[in-house]
């Protein structure tokens, strides 16, 4: 197992201290979400401060632990609206977005990495450039294309197409960078053995590129999983809404139900976190395939 040894001689104590601080900063807002969700209340504050708060009172207000534990927020979120159905919609949309997006990105990135052809540089640039036009003004033109021209309003397919396309540029850039680091010799050997280009791509290159594919898959999944405004605009039936649309019912307008929102956020985040855990080993095993050489 190749490993850097740069910090080998560092004592581990300070490193742990540093990581502990980082973990605290990272996890604190998350714990905050949890305590609001389990407080059974709808308020942002989890502890009422007395009129003249003492240091102890303030310390209490800073600790992310609700005064009273309750799961009522979770049960209300799941039972007052078809939240499970919305989660299902989100899951379907996100999974197919991932499949479509990753497939399209892989093929394109492979071509950009392996073939020399006119328009290659322009093409790569075009993908990057597409990220540069602010997306907030795209709502109306996208509505015209998807709903008016393609007739895909209130359909998951419409969302899948849009999300997959949105995630392609990042995926292509990531994958192309990764493919570049996979030694060409492997493919050349396969060519000599008479393998077709398709076979080389599917059997040799893709398996080697698993880490980068994992990252792009994750990215595509999250793009689809979190998007709100297009889903709310394209879907005209309540049972076609996605989970983020459902979540937004709780904040906005005159009343803000932070408790429901926090509980819903946790429910919505769980699949993504699980996916992260599952893909962990790929995530950290590298974005360059250099390792396979050793």
């Amino acid at each position: 197992m190749p490993r850097s040894r740069i910090s080998e001689e560092f004592p581990h104590g300070p490193l742990h201290a540093m990581l502990a601080v980082a973990v605290l900063v990272t996890i604190y807002p998350v714990l905050w979400v949890f305590s609001i969700a389990f407080s059974g209340k709808q308020s942002l504050a989890i502890a009422d401060l007395p009129p003249t708060p003492t240091a102890g009172d303030r310390l209490r207000a800073v600790v992310p632990w609700p005064e009273k534990l309750s799961v009522s927020n979770f049960t209300s979120v799941m039972s007052d609206q078809p939240f499970a159905r919305w989660m299902l919609n989100s899951a379907l949309v996100a999974i197919f977005t991932t499949l479509l997006g990753v497939f399209l990105a892989c093929t394109a990135a492979y071509a950009f990495s392996r073939f020399k052809f006119p328009g290659r540089r322009v093409g790569m640039m075009a993908f990057l450039v597409s990220q540069m036009f602010p997306g907030t003004l795209m709502l109306i033109p996208l509505y015209i294309i998807i709903v008016q021209l393609l007739g895909l309003g209130s359909s998951r397919i419409g969302l899948i197409i849009v999300y997959a396309t949105t995630s392609i540029p990042f995926s292509v850039w990531m994958l192309k960078g990764y493919f570049d680091t996979i030694p060409k010799e492997l493919e050349e050997a396969a060519v000599i053995e008479g393998a077709s280009a398709g076979k080389i791509f599917w059997r040799i290159v893709l398996p080697l590129a698993k880490p980068a594919v994992a990252i792009t898959a994750l990215f595509s999944f999250m793009t689809a999983w979190n998007e709100f405004i297009l889903a709310a605009t394209f879907m005209d039936k309540e049972n076609m809404y996605t989970a983020p649309v459902g979540l937004r019912f709780f904040v906005g307008g005159f009343s803000q139900q932070w408790g429901y929102f926090a509980a819903g956020s946790i429910i919505v985040s769980i699949p993504v976190v699980l996916l992260f855990l599952y893909l962990q080993k790929y995530l950290v095993s590298g974005l360059t395939a250099g390792g396979v050489k050793g």
Binding site: L139, Y143, I229, A232, T233, D236, E238, V245, R248, G253
Partner: peptide, 16 residues
């Protein structure tokens, strides 16, 4: 009837 989240409602009406 169809409920639309408030944050998206005005944009949705303007688009649709």
């Amino acid at each position: 009837t169809l409920a639309v989240p408030y944050d998206a409602f005005a944009d949705k009406i303007s688009a649709a």
